[in-house]
Simulated assay, not measured.
Amino acid sequence: MTTSIPKFAHLQIPLEDVVNATNNFADDNIIGRGGLGHVYKGQLQRSGELITISALRLDRKHGGGVVEFWTEVSMLSDLKHPNIVSIVGFCDEQHEKIIVTTYEAKNGSLKEHLSNPNLTWTQRLKICVGVARALSYLHYDEGRGYGVIHLNINSSTILLDKNWEPKLSGFKVSIKQSLNRMDQVVLSEPIGTIGYLDPEIEKSKGVTCKSDIYAFGVVLFEILCGRRAYIRNDANRLLAPLVMQHYENDTLPDIIHPDLKNQMSGYQISVRSLRTYSETAYSCLKEERSHRPHMLSIVNKLEKALEKALKFQPRPENFERPFLAFLFFFTPLS
């Protein structure tokens, strides 16, 4: 059976090709397990070239998932950005539904590296800038004629390639919206992952592009604090209210990732870079959507934070000064 949607016909891949590419969906080829089904790594021949792919095979045993499948195909077929996963095609044949993308996660997902001591502050900033640019493209690119509200921003949907460049994935619940209506509420049930959900959804009964801003703010603090947005059995299981409390009490350094603190004392990061970054992340978590910045502003701020980090030149004779200066930035004057 072939797809009944002519717009996507050029993306159709025969089931036989996907079966061969994944060694008949061998368990050894599974690289991820999600709500829709398993993700398999494989090698597929396309236009005379052997490429490495990820194949999301929809699990039909429990029913559902078809709307999400076509949403992701529709979204990825229109999106072309260096920080967004690239679709190769899809299979809709013999009761199988499979989305095939280029294999981007050579370093896994961001979630796996939040507490990685080898992931430097500059690398973390570059990841943030890349994701911010992808979101700005989704929200504002005029070439498509519409904006996209992602609604699934979290550290699991941010993949990292071999160069640690981020690739945004997870478009199964995304919504298209007119560019001039991105700030207007789209009626919706709460969509997303616990720990990242916009608190305004319940009050407004819907989402806007500012729902992505909130989720991205949580990711920014995950990167800074080196921990996940939600830890089930932890006393502070939700990261967002924890960082808001510490930021407002000028005690944010208490929960910053220890390895980043070590980098501070070792002259590897810029204090001003951290200040710009934390102010930006905090602004994303404002409860009222109207108080949250737009992605264009966030991109600008994060690029400045990265620029400051790259320009920072330490002086060996002042070994302790960067960390002390950082504490000063977060200590209120009295």
Rank of each mutant, 00 (worst) to 15 (best):
E96M: 04
Y103L: 11
V88P: 02
V100D: 05
G65Y: 08
V85E: 13
E96A: 04
I98D: 06
C91F: 08
E96Y: 08
F90Q: 08
V66M: 13
E93Q: 15
D92W: 09
D78Y: 10
V100K: 00
T102Y: 13
G64C: 10
V66T: 12
L76F: 01
L79C: 08
V66W: 09
S77L: 05
L76W: 04
M75D: 08
Q94E: 15
T71G: 10
I98M: 03
K80G: 07
D92R: 00
H81N: 14
V100F: 01
P82R: 09
T71W: 06
S77I: 06
H81L: 12
H62V: 10
G65T: 08
I98F: 01
I99N: 02
K80Y: 09
A105Y: 11
D78W: 11
C91G: 04
S77D: 09
L79R: 01
S77N: 04
G64P: 12
T102I: 11
S74F: 03
T102A: 13
M75H: 02
S86F: 04
I98P: 02
E68W: 03
L76I: 05
V73S: 06
H62I: 11
G65Q: 10
V66L: 15
D92E: 15
E104N: 07
K97E: 14
Y103T: 02
M75A: 12
F90W: 07
V66K: 08
L76Q: 05
V85Q: 07
T101C: 14
E104P: 01
V66Q: 10
E96G: 03
C91D: 10
G64Y: 11
Y103S: 07
G65S: 12
P82K: 10
V85N: 09
T71I: 12
C91W: 01
W70T: 01
D78E: 15
E68L: 06
I98W: 00
E68Y: 00
V67N: 13
V67D: 15
V100P: 01
V73F: 06
T101F: 04
T101D: 11
K80V: 13
S74L: 06
V85L: 05
G63E: 07
G64I: 06
L76T: 03
L79H: 02
V100G: 04
I99L: 15
H62W: 11
S74C: 13
I84A: 05
D78A: 14
Q94I: 10
D78L: 13
K80L: 12
E104C: 13
T101G: 03
I98C: 03
E93G: 04
W70C: 06
H95V: 10
L76K: 00
A105N: 14
P82M: 11
M75Y: 00
I98E: 08
P82V: 02
E93D: 15
G89F: 05
S77V: 04
S86N: 14
E68H: 02
T71A: 09
G65V: 09
T102H: 15
Q94L: 14
T101Y: 07
F90D: 11
